[in-house]
């Protein structure tokens, strides 16, 4: 199938992706080299391919790449600071042992960032609601909840 160029702003930088009409945003990003976007099911069930699309949480296997034309895409690498320092959410995940195999982590971190944008001081219930679209088989989620609370405190301090 013939490919066409689409323009997106990827982690703050304008880029052009060459895609077939049937290519999902997930596969397009991965082909471009953004491998933090993981393919766990390609059916919209597991959340490992989560990105922020124009600031909103989106499973990238559930949109076609052509739908992202002209839009902003943020992936987990895009959260890093200018010198590669971890975002407070990423840092909190490391400190609380909220990572095991790490395959769900990039998507989970983005879901947590999105949640904390909406609820800077979340309750356990809000955390569970906000992260319910992202599966994790390793941690039992307990440490992830601890990490999100810690990230909330770290972000508050930074403000």
């Amino acid at each position: 199938m013939p490919k066409q160029p689409i323009n997106v702003v990827l982690n703050g930088k304008p880029v052009t992706l060459e895609v077939e009409p049937r290519t999902t945003l997930l596969r397009a990003l991965r082909e471009f080299g953004v491998t933090s976007v993981k393919r766990g099911c390609e059916e919209g069930e597991c959340g490992t391919c989560t990105v922020l699309l124009d600031g909103k949480l989106q499973k990238s296997c559930m949109v076609l790449a052509v739908e992202a034309e002209g839009r902003k895409v943020v992936t987990s690498e895009g959260l890093l600071g200018p010198d590669g320092e971890l975002h407070p959410v990423q840092k909190a995940f490391v400190e609380e042992g909220a990572i095991q195999c790490g395959f769900c982590t990039p998507g989970m971190v983005l879901a947590a960032v999105d949640l904390l944008n909406r609820h800077p001081d979340p309750t356990d219930e809000q955390i569970k609601e906000g992260l319910s679209g992202n599966l994790c088989r390793c941690t039992g989620y307990v440490s992830i909840i601890r990490a999100v609370h810690k990230a909330a405190a770290m972000l508050k301090e930074r403000r």
Partner: peptide, 8 residues
């Protein structure tokens, strides 16, 4: 874990 959190 740092690489895992960053996605790299």
């Amino acid at each position: 874990d740092v690489e895992k959190a960053a996605g790299t």
